[in-house]
Design a protein around this nucleic acid. Structure first.
Lengths: 341, 341
DNA sequence: CGCTCCCTCTAAACCGGTTTAGTGCTGCAG
DNA sequence: CTGCAGCACTAAACCGGTTTAGAGGGAGCG
């Protein structure tokens, strides 16, 4: 494991018989170096196996060439969420193209999250950050504004607009789901909502309520959860126990919807005969449960890419290019059908 | 977004009326600074809101204070895998305690993966790396050895032993699952395996075969998959179509097991009456499908912590402390039962 | 009183790049 | 032949910390 010390730019300079500066110019192919000299320098660099030290570069150009993502989640709620792996994959694709790196932090609570942002941004480890899991009136916005670090809000633009937001608006997706149920003839449509503290919990609930209202239907029952399978199952039991149970339920994510399917199955409630079920996220498993789950799909990878692109633009002070993210689309499968008469 | 230039150590020195060196000593509470001077320096630093520049520190001490994790996965297969979020959470807990950061890269193919490691380690962005998804005869081991970067193999120690391996051996878990089925009276026990190219695909299959052999039972049918729900469903159909279908199936992960449950359900095959099903991973949803899934649970968060600890020890040249990771344990739920006579 | 030793602190080198000011040389116009 | 522009390149400063060599001063000891 002995760390052979890597050749530096000075070694290359000596080998090529020129000065450090000339080497730097040649390697960043900048004008002011004769073609043959440049060739000689590149050859020397290749010969020595020289690689630029990102540490030195970061210091001299005052850039970290990295952006940060802080996840304030407990491991349990993180592992059930298929959003982040996809999102990060999208982010990475874009970052890699610009030789940027992604610095990830997972923190347990909010206080640590703030410290985390401070250390990352203030200490110059990153040039910008993503803000995910946006809360209603999120305190991080003020913090990041105070630190003065470029940031991009991942999700619908409810952050007060101080930072640009890049996100797929989930309202049309939920609206499409509810409309689909209305079209099938349902009139008692319930919602199993995510935490009201989260923007994406609230907005999905709103979309549900608004679509019902627009169709002139009464707002059905709604149960708030923490996005976990456990709470989704509990919510389903609550709904089925109502004097007038709903004939359809729109869940805020797939995991809860699948748990709901299992509860219905265990109780002998036929899906979709007696109960229609809709998820959100269109996870890989959605198509492979019984009955296959109707769900709302979003291209999360593209979303991650767009968010990263916007953040890099912000960091570079470039003009914003408008991302064209496709709207979420409803994937109809066998878990939804006409209500029993 | 105007980037106010942060105060440097020189600013603090000027404010406190001492030299840069003295400030550095005081801030790293090292001997050789008088108590009152130290106090004055700390006060000045606090006053100015000084934060160390990790860039400068990294250059001067020749350390990145970061480790890298490169995931060579397609986004689709990444998002279904609950392993990484948990693992990363565990890694982070440990890294945060030592003020280390995690640099994540997601790359599409193997060539890029190699480039990725090269840039990361050779360029000095990280002080060490994790190697996950170990392949049988993994070429990365040689690459990393050549680069000379400390590395920790995540998983059972089959990497040739050049780098330390930290991992929960999955064999006892699979063995326990197979034994559980044997104890229930099953004799035709199939396996839906992961890709043979992966160490954890191969080792689970081996454990299954060995446990059957040890019990004097014939090796049941085995279908190789790519770990996806789709392939798990297909494998299940293959098995159920056999002239003599198995009475129990051990799946290499939960997602495939759940897809298998759905296939059985769709075909009217009763679980566990006609078919017992065992998963691996014990995902959040496992307890909430119908019937609840018997599965093998591992404390992945602890695993991540142990891997990070070992890597930091390696980076610091410290002695290895033996991690005490608990063995995987079988969580018996309702998807397994005695075979029909 | 003079010497050594220790403690505190300063000056300067260093990490490995980037960037700026400036030098020497060539070539062309006047 | 001189003047000046412009190219190719060098020397040195700079980024912001850490670290080493050494200076200065007071205490303890002979």
């Amino acid at each position: 494991m002995l760390q052979v010390s890597r050749p530096t730019i000075s070694d290359v300079a000596r080998a090529a018989g020129v000065s450090k500066g000339a080497v730097s110019f040649a390697l960043n192919n900048r004008p002011g170096v004769a073609a043959d000299t440049r060739e000689r320098i590149l050859a020397a660099a290749r010969e020595l196996g020289w690689t630029p030290s990102s540490r030195a570069r970061a210091l001299s150009v005052s850039r970290a060439f990295a952006v940060g993502l802080v996840l304030a989640r407990k491991p349990e709620t993180l592992r059930a969420d298929p959003f982040f792996p996809s999102f990060i994959a999208g982010v990475e694709q874009e970052l890699a193209a610009h030789d940027y790196a992604l610095l990830l932090q997972v923190v347990a609570d909010q206080q640590r999250e703030h410290d985390s942002y401070r250390r990352l941004a203030h200490g110059g480890r990153v040039d910008g950050v993503f803000v995910t899991d946006l809360l209603v009136d999120d305190p991080r916005i003020a913090l990041l504004a105070e630190i003065g670090v470029p940031a991009v809000v991942v999700g619908p633009a409810l952050g007060g607009g101080f930072f640009p937001a890049v996100g797929v608006d989930d309202k049309p997706g939920v609206a499409a789901a509810v409309q689909h149920l209305i079209d099938l003839g349902h009139t008692r449509i319930a919602h199993v909502a995510g935490p009201a503290a989260y923007v994406h919990g609230t907005s999905r609930k709103q979309a549900w309520a608004e679509t019902l209202a627009a169709a002139g239907l009464p707002e059905g029952p709604c149960v708030e959860t923490d996005f976990s399978a456990e709470s989704g199952a509990a919510a389903t039991r609550t709904l089925l126990d109502l004097a007038e149970p709903p004939t359809a339920v729109v869940y805020a994510n797939d995991v809860m919807a699948m748990a709901g399917l299992a509860v219905a199955h265990a109780r002998g409630v036929d899906v979709p005969g007696e109960l229609s079920v809709v998820g959100y996220e269109d996870t890989e498993l959605a198509a492979h449960v019984q009955p296959p789950l109707t769900s709302v799909a979003t291209d999360v990878v593209a979303w991650g890419g767009a968010a990263a692109r916007r953040l890099l633009e912000l960091v570079d002070g470039r003009e914003a290019t408008e991302p064209d993210l496709e709207s979420p689309r409803l994937v109809v499968r066998a878990s939804t059908g006409a209500p029993a008469r």
